[in-house]
């Protein structure tokens, strides 16, 4: 395993899932810190605050974005995030993570340039490690 990632981000309303991913990250020592938002709007607000304060060190290296969430779902978040993303200097890798196996969702996710891949839940531990490893070595 290579170097450890600074900051990972999960946007998901499923508390159990978030808890389990947090455990995986702790056990496997995949990231120093973890940001958790329970819907798209909370995450978007956070990124907007960072933009106004110019504190880029608080930007995550990687985002795991769920699709079905209340208030602002993953699609709407993508639509908003795309508008502000270019104002960050830092490269942010974004994965869509959903339990939906609907091919229409898959197609739609892949149509966004900023989406690196579409991951279907459950993600295997080894896959998690691989993704973190790759992103950390690039960063």
């Amino acid at each position: 395993m290579g170097q450890k990632m600074e900051l990972a981000c999960i946007i998901d309303d499923d508390k159990i899932y978030v808890n389990l991913v947090r455990k995986i990250i702790e056990i496997k020592k995949l990231s120093e810190n973890l940001l958790i938002f329970k819907n798209g709007l909370e995450a978007l607000d956070y990124f907007k605050i960072i933009l106004t304060n110019m504190t880029e060190e608080k930007l995550p290296d990687i985002i795991f974005l769920d699709l079905n969430m209340p208030v602002m779902d993953g699609w709407e978040f993508l639509g908003e995030f795309i508008k502000i993303k270019n104002q960050f200097d830092k490269k942010i890798t974004l994965y869509v993570v959903s339990s939906s196996i609907d091919p229409r969702d898959l197609e739609r996710a892949k149509s966004f340039n900023l989406v690196t891949d579409y991951l279907i839940k459950p993600i295997e531990l080894k896959k998690f490690e691989k993704i973190f490893d790759r992103v950390a070595s690039v960063a």
Partner: peptide
């Protein structure tokens, strides 16, 4: 789609627990 999504989200959590 909803049925699949809803049942899958729980089964995938279960699978994560088993892995952990």
């Amino acid at each position: 789609h909803v049925v699949s999504h809803n049942l899958r989200s729980h089964s995938s959590n279960l699978s994560l627990v088993v892995q952990l």
